[in-house]
Write a protein that binds this DNA or RNA. Structure first.
Length: 612
RNA sequence: GCGGCCGUAGCUCAGCUGGAUAGAGCACCAGACUUCGAAUCUGGUGGUCGCGCGUUCGAAUCGCGCCGGCCGCACCA
């Protein structure tokens, strides 16, 4: 039981229960659940075993609790067992256990919190999957970050995961993009070219950029008689029909690479990209087979999939329209069937909340194919409200320009963008205050977390500097605290304060937190872990120095002779503990995909020297 | 109308696979520094967990009903 996770304690309690059973003091088969105590008074861990088992045992909960407590009290790592309330058994470990267990994060480094690979079928997480018809906007950004952080989190929990992007690179929307590019090309040749009067075309500025780039595109190679005459090439393009497929191909390919570039900047990548066009190649045979098996039927010239009555669906769904074109649903369902064919045991999709009505249809479709509908999980990501100092930022869609994800990242930075997107559960609306995210003050959570890490690093840096200035014995202790090989070990008792034990215990909750967050598919919990750990440390640190005049390291103002009376053993223990805290912060930020800087840059206006 | 999500402190939200006195940040009020990173920290004010009924030893958490808000109900994607 080296790591003192809830699982470790669960085993310990299970063993105690087994012993009671062998002795005939218990007869039922209830498995004890062990959780971390919410309140300090309740110790470190608690189990409700007695209350849960009381019915089967036909005994009073308190009586069972007493018996279990007596058995648990024999364990050498357990300092105290209390029976409380209606029958809780509260366990408290010896504080030295927490101190010793810090060896785990210190040995694992940034892998701390991660678990060994599990023998389970891999999971596919599909996210973003925005149409390649325009730049990503802020809402896509949230889906991207939540999806990417979930992938990292599931991997930390020991799952095999593939991140996928599905390109809707076929159908009306991309054709509209091609047509819009064609219109803009004509306009370049003749500014009086009328703009379309319908609502379907894409009027954003980026389409004008696509038009300007079009003549140089490989799509149109060989079109003009004289390839070196740019104006001639442009005229040749303008003479093409609006629906020329090359406009579509050009726009689509440019947008795909632009989207991937934006995501790469956000540290979001994919192992696999699927294309709707590729899926569509095998679609006729796929649905012909379903038709043969009576799972799809032609009615009024369209082909319907027999989804009625499954997953709450009240009607059959069209997969091939009466004009012969396959619907989006038809290809999407085939894509999901293909995911299962490729061996995934579970599919997680991240969708915008406005797509929730599509979930039953998709699941019903899987059901028709004979797959368990619930292998598909959908995380609905709610909308993002962009604010600046609390005031709404206008996101006009009518004119076609809106705040793009690129602009947001350039404005506040990758770390702030990722972090803020992870400060809320995916299914609640999120206010993103751009001004706040840029601010270098404590009310900015990103800054707070990164500052906390920089501060931990600064202490360790200072300890290294100090090692060159102190006598031999002190140097060995500093070396031990910094984890240098060869230094004499640090006794556990050297880290003695209750708040130090409390923080050590908190550090060691990360493996549990990772498992629970992964299970719940809630990456935001990792950000909360960072926030709480940082806060606990900052509180400790200021109080030690300001209120107790008990700093971790001797202040620079101390004279050289005062260093002789310094308690270097205690300093060594604290340095080791600080390294463990820093490791946990780094590891957690790593799961969030946020950088853990070793130092913060000074801002122009917040400089310490100027401020006094 | 049918279905989904949401309703927790003045504001923004955690907590929701039932657990022992409901938490955080911001805001507001009152404090702590001649700095190992004060770019920090401490304390206080503040809540009928939308309302009602039920299940349970125990409900913010589960179920049902109502109220209020958002969203979806395509041979669009």
């Amino acid at each position: 039981m080296a790591n003192f996770t809830s699982q470790d304690l669960g085993k310990l309690v299970q063993e105690a229960v087994d012993r009671l059973r062998e002795r005939g003091e218990l007869t039922s088969r209830t498995t004890p659940q062990v959780t971390r105590a919410k309140s300090e008074e309740h110790g470190d861990f608690t189990t409700n075993f007695a209350m849960v088992a009381a019915k089967a045992e036909q005994r009073k909960p308190r009586e069972l609790a007493e018996a279990l407590a007596k058995e648990l009290a024999r364990h050498p790592d357990i300092a105290d067992v209390q029976v409380a309330g209606p029958g809780f058994v509260n366990l408290r470990l010896r504080p030295e256990n927490w101190v010793r267990a810090l060896d785990l994060p210190l040995a694992q480094g940034e892998r701390f919190g991660s678990h060994a690979p599990r023998e389970e079928a891999p999971i596919v997480v599909e996210f973003v999957s925005a149409n390649p018809t325009g730049p990503l906007h802020v809402g896509h950004g949230r889906g991207a970050v939540v999806g990417d952080a979930l992938v990292r989190l599931l991997r930390a929990a020991g799952q095999r995961v593939t991140a996928e992007y599905y390109w809707n690179d076929r159908g009306r929307q991309v054709r509209e993009l091609g047509r819009s590019v064609a219109v803009r090309v004509r306009q370049l040749v003749d500014p009086s070219t009328p703009l379309p009067t319908d609502e379907n075309w894409y009027r954003g500025d980026y389409v004008c950029d696509l038009a300007r780039e079009a003549p140089a595109s490989a799509q149109f190679a060989g079109l003009a008689a004289d390839e070196t005459d740019e104006a001639a090439r442009l005229r040749a393009l303008a003479a093409l029909p609006e629906d020329d497929e090359r406009f579509t191909a050009h726009g689509r390919e440019r947008m795909q690479s632009a989207i991937l570039a934006t995501l790469a900047k956000l540290r979001v990548g994919f192992e696999y990209q699927e294309s709707e066009r590729r899926i569509a190649e095998s679609i006729a045979g796929f649905y012909a087979e379903l038709e043969r098996r009576g799972l799809a039927r032609v009615r009024d010239g369209a082909l319907f999939l027999a989804t009625e009555g499954k997953e709450g669906e009240d009607k059959d769904r069209v997969v091939r329209k009466s004009d012969g074109e396959w619907t989006y649903f038809a290809t999407d369902l085939l894509y999901h069937a293909d995911k299962l064919r490729r061996g995934f045991g579970r599919m997680i999709n991240i969708w915008g909340a406005d797509h929730h009505g599509y979930i039953p249809r998709m699941r019903a479709g899987l059901g028709v194919l004979g797959h368990p509908p619930r292998t598909l999980e959908v995380l609905l990501v709610q909308m993002v409200n962009l604010l600046s100092d609390g005031q709404p930022v206008k996101m006009s869609k009518r004119s076609g320009d809106f705040v793009t994800l690129d602009e947001l990242i350039d404005e506040v930075g990758v770390d702030a963008t990722r972090y803020i997107f992870l400060t809320r559960r995916h299914d609640s609306q999120l206010d993103f205050d751009i001004a706040l995210a840029k601010r270098r003050t404590l009310d900015n959570p990103v800054f707070y977390a990164q500052y906390g890490h920089a501060r931990l690093s600064a202490i360790l840096r200072r300890a290294e500097e100090l090692a060159g200035l102190v006598p031999e014995g002190a140097r060995d202790r500093l070396a031990a605290g910094l984890g240098r090989p060869g230094a004499a070990p640090i006794p556990e008792s050297a880290l003695a304060l209750p708040e130090e034990h409390r923080l050590a215990r908190r550090v060691l909750t990360l493996p549990d937190a990772v498992l629970e967050a992964a299970e719940a598919r809630e990456p935001h919990r990792i950000v909360y872990f960072v926030q709480e750990l940082s806060q606990a440390f900052q509180s400790y640190y200021t109080a030690r120095w300001k209120q107790h005049d008990d700093p971790v390291l001797p202040p620079t103002r101390l004279a050289r002779e005062a260093l002789a009376g310094w308690d270097w053993e205690r300093t060594a223990a604290r340095l080791r503990w600080i390294r463990a805290i820093r490791t946990a912060v780094r590891a957690a930020l790593g799961i969030a995909g946020v950088e853990a800087p070793d130092r913060m840059e000074w801002s122009e206006d917040g400089d310490r020297e100027e401020g006094g």
